[in-house]
Nucleic acid binder design. Structure first.
Lengths: 298, 298
DNA sequence: ACATTCATTCCGTATATCGGAATAAGTCAA
DNA sequence: TTGACTTATTCCGATATACGGAATGAATGT
C-alpha cells in the first residue's frame, strides 16, 4: 500500500529481517513460528523466505527439519568480506607482532557508523575480557580505549555528531556526563593515545592508538587489552610506543575509503548487548523492532 | 522462465548474487557495471538491488558514491552468527589453553558441506601459513590435517560421497590418487588423529584431532599448525594428547545439529571460493587476492 | 486417545520487480 | 573549452513474484 518513504515491504528487507533475528539468537536454532513472531512476518511468509534462504545456502536447518539457523557458509561469506580497504590483511602482521612481543591480546577496531567493531584479534597468553570481545563485536564509539581512540581522532564535525548521538548510549556504561567525555577526548588527542584504566571492567585495562588515514582521520585503532597490573607506569610507555610504531606504518597503506556517517540504519544493528539504541529517526524512522504481534502493514 | 530446477529469478537470489560477487572482490569496492557484469544482472537491476542492500546496511559505498563494498555491519552480523550450536564459544577456551601451552597456532575447523571452514583461530608466537588461513577460509575436505581429520571420521556414507565429490578438487593440491587418499584416511581413523607433515606447504606441519558429536560423527577438528621442526617425534605425542583431551571435553557439550549434505550449490562462494593459500610473508602481510573467478592455482 | 501447537502447501490477488530505453553524470583526449 | 565516450541513475509499462488468509498435514503433549 503505497510508498511509505522507505521500502519495508520488499522481499529483501523481510529476508534480512529474518537473518537479523537468527543472528541475534544464540545459534541453537529457531522454529518458524518464533522467527515469524520476532521478525513481524506472517508464518507463511517466514516459511517461504526461509526456504529461499536455504536455497541460497544462508540458512540451514538441523535435526530432522525443525530448527533454523544461519549457516557456516554465511559466516564464511561475510568473513572474507567485511574488510574495508583490506584493512584486516594490512593489520594482521602488526597484530601478530604485537601480541607476540607484548604477550597481551591485541584488537583491531574499525569504525562503523556510531560504533566500533572488532575486526580482528590476536590473543596473548593473558586471558582478558573486553567490551567488544569477539571478532564482530560492537561497542558505541567512546566505550573502551580502542573505541575512544577512534572517536577522539575523527574530524571535528563527525566527532560532534557522534558525541551527540552516543551520549545517551554511553550513560549505560560509565557515569559519563558530557563534560567528562570531552575531557577524556581532549586528553586522548593530546597524548595521541587512549590509556588509563577506565575501571569499567574490574581489573582490566587497555591502551589504544588510532590508525589514521592519509587525511589524518581515524578509521581504526589498535588496542591492547590486558589486566591492570600489566599496564604499570613503567611498562605503559613501551607499549604505547610499540603500538604507535605499528599504526604509523599502517596508515599510509590504507586504501582510501570513507565510512559514511549513517544512523545505525535499520540494518544489521547492535545485536550485541547494550549497544542497541532506540531512537526513532525522523525520516527513515519507522521499522524499529516491531512490537511483538504487530502486523506489518500491507 | 519458470522451472529450471531451482528458482533463480527471485529477487533474493539476485541480491545474494551481488553479495557473493562483492565478497569475492578484494574489498576495494566495485562499480555498478562491474557488479552487473559479474553477477549476470542488468545494470538497472544491479543498481536497484544495490540501493536496497544499502538501505539494509549490507552494502556501503565509499568515495563520493562510486565504489560499492560490503559493510562492516554485514561482517559483524555474520560474525556473531555462524556459530553452529555455539561451537565457537564452546571451543574458545580450549583454543586459548592450547595456543598458550603449546605456543603454536590452533585452528578450529568445522565441516560445511564438502568443505572445512575455519571458524576460529588462536595464534601462538610461531608464525605459520595454513590452507584455511583466515577465519572464514575454506578448504576442500581432505586438504590439510584438520580437514582430513574431519573427513576421516564422517559416517561412512557421507565420507564416500565427499570423497567422490572432492577427488577432482584434491588433484589440484597434492598428487592425490584415490588409493592414497583412502590410505591416509584409514591411518587417521586408526590413530585417531591426522598428523604427519604432508609437505603441501614447505616447512609447515600440522596435527589435528576430530571433535566428535555424541553420535561419534566428526563435526569439527582442532588442529595445530606449526613449522615442521616443532613436530618432532618426541613432541608429537604430547601435542596429540593435549588436543585429544580438549576434544573429548568438547564433544559432549555440542548441541545436536547436523550439517546437511548438499552440493555446494549456487550457494555462497562455493567450491573454489576463498580457498586461498597464504603465500604472504608475515611481516609485509598483504596479498592473497586471486583474480575473481579464477580457480585456485595448483 | 484427543486437543493443541506448529509446519507446510494452496491459490487468487495485487504489488513489487524487471529490464529496455531515456536521461544524467562523470571521464578523457585534444 | 568542446565533444565523444563511458558509466550511473531514473522512468515506466508489463508481468512475473511475493503476499497472506485459510486449509491441510505433521508433531507434541496430556
Amino acid at each position: 500500500m503505497s510508498d511509505r518513504e522507505a521500502q519495508q515491504g520488499t522481499g529483501l528487507h523481510r529476508a534480512f529481517a529474518i537473518i537479523r533475528v537468527l543472528a541475534a539468537s544464540d545459534g541453537t536454532g529457531m522454529r518458524v513460528t518464533q522467527i515469524a513472531r520476532e521478525s513481524g512476518l506472517t508464518q507463511a511468509t517466514a516459511h517461504r523466505l526461509l526456504q529461499a534462504l536455504m536455497a541460497e545456502g544462508v540458512v540451514v536447518q538441523g535435526e530432522g527439519s525443525r530448527l533454523y539457523r544461519l549457516s557456516v557458509e554465511f559466516f564464511a561469506l561475510a568473513a572474507s568480506a567485511g574488510n574495508p580497504g583490506n584493512l584486516r590483511d594490512l593489520c594482521r602482521p602488526a597484530l601478530l607482532r604485537l601480541s607476540a612481543s607484548l604477550g597481551d591480546t591485541i584488537f583491531l577496531l574499525v569504525r562503523s557508523g556510531f560504533d566500533a567493531v572488532c575486526l580482528d584479534r590476536s590473543e596473548g597468553p593473558f586471558p582478558i575480557r573486553s567490551f567488544t570481545g569477539d571478532v564482530g563485536g560492537r561497542v558505541a564509539l567512546g566505550v573502551g580505549q580502542g573505541s575512544l581512540a577512534i572517536l577522539a581522532f575523527l574530524p571535528e564535525a563527525e566527532r560532534e555528531e557522534v558525541i551527540r548521538f552516543n551520549l545517551p548510549r554511553l550513560r549505560d556504561f560509565g557515569v559519563f556526563d558530557e563534560v567528562y567525555l570531552r575531557t577524556e577526548i581532549a586528553r586522548v588527542r593530546e597524548l595521541g593515545y587512549a590509556g588509563r584504566n577506565t575501571g569499567l571492567l574490574p581489573g582490566m585495562a587497555g591502551v589504544a592508538v588510532p590508525v589514521l588515514d592519509r587525511d589524518g582521520r581515524a578509521v581504526a585503532a589498535l588496542s591492547v587489552g590486558t589486566i591492570a597490573e600489566r599496564l604499570s607506569p613503567e611498562r605503559l610507555p613501551t607499549v604505547v610506543e610499540l603500538l604507535r610504531r605499528e599504526t604509523v606504518a599502517i596508515g599510509p597503506g590504507i586504501n582510501p575509503f570513507d565510512v559514511v556517517l549513517r544512523r545505525p540504519a535499520q540494518g544489521l544493528g547492535g545485536i550485541n548487548g547494550p549497544t542497541r539504541i532506540e531512537t526513532s529517526d525522523s525520516r527513515t524512522g519507522q521499522q524499529g523492532r516491531l512490537p511483538p504481534g504487530a502486523a506489518p502493514r500491507s
